[in-house]
């Protein structure tokens, strides 16, 4: 819940900070000092810890190479970190609406676009926290083969793009959803749909249609890029085409989220409202 206690402080004077920064500050306080961010981070660390433990055990038993185990952990971190940002963003507007705090927020002298931008960046803070939590695991799994730096840079770049894409998607859904439950469930459903191509058999992924599906999907394309860097030891530009859809997805959806929210952050949800 975002409560801007002193609306007068938000007046757009030359000395006051931009409105989106005020919203961001309030959202971060709400997310992290309110405890929700830490609880989600705790759940994330448990999950990544279990994955890291399993891959370390498999590496110890020679069933997995160190590069593969590092890549696998990083890919799980990117996917789950993206999920966290999606959940927070999907709650951003519909949640305020259901808790009855959206009206107060809309009465403040901050534009709807600035509200959306502040909320979007605040949701991304969960991804950055998730990445910081992942760093020790990646170091532990990858330091023996000297791939920690490459893994972390690739993970940060791809994870940030994926997180921007998913958070923007969640915010758009949240603007239109008639209820918070619909917003969250629809966002989760869309995320699962994006992750579904990873379950395709290897043969189907190598066929042209499967390859195209993996390339146009920002999640699978991003994860494939990470795998190429970490597992195959490729250079940064060798497989740069795999980054195309994460970059386009992040840019297009972030722009769309800000534009859509400028018009559709309203007291009543639903597409016809």
């Amino acid at each position: 819940m975002t409560e801007l206690a002193h609306p007068s402080e938000l007046a757009q004077t030359s000395e006051s900070p931009p409105g989106w920064l005020v919203v961001l500050s309030q959202e971060l306080r709400d997310l992290w000092l309110g405890g929700r961010g830490l609880v989600l981070s705790f759940a994330f660390s448990v999950l990544v810890g279990i994955i890291a433990y399993l891959v370390a055990t498999n590496t110890d038993l020679n069933f997995l190479e160190q590069r593969e185990s590092t890549s696998l952990t990083l890919q799980v971190a990117i996917a789950v970190g993206g999920l966290l940002t999606l959940l927070v963003a999907a709650d951003a507007v519909s949640g305020e609406r259901e808790r009855g705090t959206l009206e107060t927020l809309l009465l403040t002298p901050v534009s709807r676009r600035e509200i959306a931008t502040g909320k979007l960046v605040a949701a991304l803070s969960l991804w950055f926290a998730a990445f910081v939590i992942t760093v020790p695991y990646v170091w532990f799994l990858g330091h023996g083969v000297g791939i920690v730096d490459e893994a972390l840079v690739a993970g940060l770049a791809v994870g940030t793009l994926v997180a921007v894409f998913l958070a923007s998607l969640g915010l758009i859904v949240s603007c239109f959803a008639a209820s918070n439950r619909i917003s969250l469930s629809l966002s989760l459903f869309v995320l699962l749909a994006f992750l579904a191509p990873t379950q395709l058999p290897a043969g189907a992924q190598q066929a042209w249609a499967g390859d195209l599906l993996l390339r146009v999907n920002p999640l699978t394309a991003g994860e494939r890029y990470v795998s190429k860097i970490v597992v195959n030891g490729h250079g940064w530009t060798e497989d740069i085409s795999w980054l195309l859809s994460p970059v386009i997805g992040a840019l297009v959806f972030a722009t769309a989220a800000v534009l859509v929210s400028g018009r559709y952050i309203r007291l009543r949800g639903g597409v016809s409202g």
Binding site: V39, G49, I50, Y53
Partner: peptide, 20 residues
Amino acid sequence: NAGGIVPLVLGIPAALGLMA
């Protein structure tokens, strides 16, 4: 305790849990 990962797997969630 493959390669000594257990302290890491238990330590990070414990620290975050305590903070929360």
